[in-house]
């Protein structure tokens, strides 16, 4: 007898590891939802693309990685294959979008009308291959598509004022306000909604110092590895939980 559960595919790059851990550790309740993972890291992620009528790997190596990540050996995703697809991370980086725009907005000439901001958001999304795939997947309405962008970089692991890091380039963004974040991420959300995709915003309680993620959500061993990008299973649980709530 076929499952009455909803099917969810978590699709992304290395960030989906934290989602797998969150689910595996029971940090998020997925009652009534069957989950599959699909994605790859690095070069292999770049080799996943729209081919004919489905999202597929474009190299043998990427196909091998997909087989190792997806328990069913699935090699393609098309509209209707899942009830829900969550693009997770997938190179749509809040840390690229928000700080540079806050830096611009803080200049005397930096005011952006809503239309201009939306144009910026549209271009940012359009530059991201995964966002284009999400739009395509959502296109015929059979699959509900969510997108959780790569969260802000983690605070407290490295000095963000050093080298060419965020605060070295844009020192003033440390004081980014909740209103500023809401306006910018709201523009992303509105543009994605036009594509039929639901943006999953980073929870406000996880944001510190304007445009960073609280150190308590750092990936395991971040201090040793210097990894300011990946986050913990607790963080992923918050994100997936909001998708589950929205999906109901």
């Amino acid at each position: 007898m076929p499952s009455q559960n909803k099917s969810l595919c978590v699709f992304g790059d290395s960030h989906i590891g934290s989602v797998r851990k969150a689910i595996g550790d029971g940090k998020v309740k997925l009652r009534g939802i069957d989950v599959e993972f699909w994605g790859a890291t690095g070069e292999n992620f770049r080799n996943i693309n729209l081919v004919d009528d489905a999202i597929r790997p474009q190299s043998d190596e990427a196909a091998e990685v997909l087989k190792s990540i997806n328990a069913r050996g699935r090699l393609s995703i098309a509209p209707g294959d899942f009830d829900l697809v969550l693009f997770y991370g997938a190179r749509l980086r809040l840390s690229s979008f928000v700080p540079s725009l806050v830096h611009h907005m803080r200049k005397p000439h930096g005011y952006m009308s809503e239309a201009v901001l939306r144009a910026a958001a549209r271009r940012f999304i359009g530059n991201c291959r995964a966002a284009r795939l999400a739009k395509w997947l959502a296109g015929d309405g059979r699959t509900r598509v969510f997108f959780a962008p790569t969260p802000f970089l983690t605070w407290g692991v490295l000095d963000h004022r050093q080298d060419k890091r965020t605060l070295a380039l844009y020192p003033e963004v440390e004081s980014t306000t909740a209103e500023e974040r809401a306006r910018l991420i709201g523009a992303l959300s509105a543009e994605m909604a036009q594509d039929g995709v639901t943006l999953v915003p980073q929870p406000e309680e996880t944001v510190v110092h304007g445009v960073f993620t609280d150190q308590k959500y750092a990936v395991e061993n971040a201090a040793e590895s210097g990894d300011i990008s990946h986050k913990s299973a607790e963080f992923a649980a918050l994100m997936v939980d909001s998708v589950v709530r929205a999906a109901k």
């Binding site: 611009h104 000439h109 201009v116 144009a119 910026a120 958001a121 271009r123």
Partner: peptide, 17 residues
């Protein structure tokens, strides 16, 4: 350019605005 376009607003969109 004393009033440059915001980041990501480029080319045709910058011109449009």
């Amino acid at each position: 350019d004393a009033e440059p376009a915001p980041p990501f607003v480029q080319d045709d969109e910058a011109w449009r605005y």
